[in-house]
Amino acid sequence: MPFEMIVIGASWGGLRALEAVLGSVPRHFETPIVIAQHRATQSATGALPHTLAHHSGHDVCEPGDKDPIEAGRVYVAPADYHLLVDPEGFALSTEGAVRFSRPSIDVLFDSAADVYAERLAAVILTGANDDGAYGITRVRRRGGLTVAQDPAGAERPEMPLAAIATGAVQHVLPLEEIGPFLVKTVGSERTAA
């Protein structure tokens, strides 16, 4: 089965970690990458995607409601919304913060796992809370591929530690190996399929 999406959750220290991961994934990598990065409610629209695009060379954007999910693109959850994956595309929500976060990594992972099951890969990066721990168990239960950044090298270890503690993480990798691993695993299964 080919992978249809990679979801990534990041919090404290996430910007640098995301730049590292995206930087080692080739431009126009076919599988869409969808990111929930915790950030301030008032963050300016477009600032985070702009920075990520600038540093990684990828086509990065904040999706609008019901936007189709397109191959070769990187998407970032807009500030102060939850980003969900629906059968008909992206969906946004302003329901309350989940574990103090909006966007919530759990909400993104849970909805994507529902739609893509074993065709989903999920990655938890650095962070100082436990958002994503529930989400990654949902991804794994649905047969998806699960990865966490090695807490030892993370700017903040709490978030990958919480994910690993659930027992749902299959691969714990140093930051610099995550991008190449995704390219190899997600990419090769695509060709095999």
Binding site: L84, D86, E88, E95
Partner: peptide, 9 residues
Amino acid sequence: YALGSLKRR
């Protein structure tokens, strides 16, 4: 309604 958030609720 859109399915994802509906199911959560």
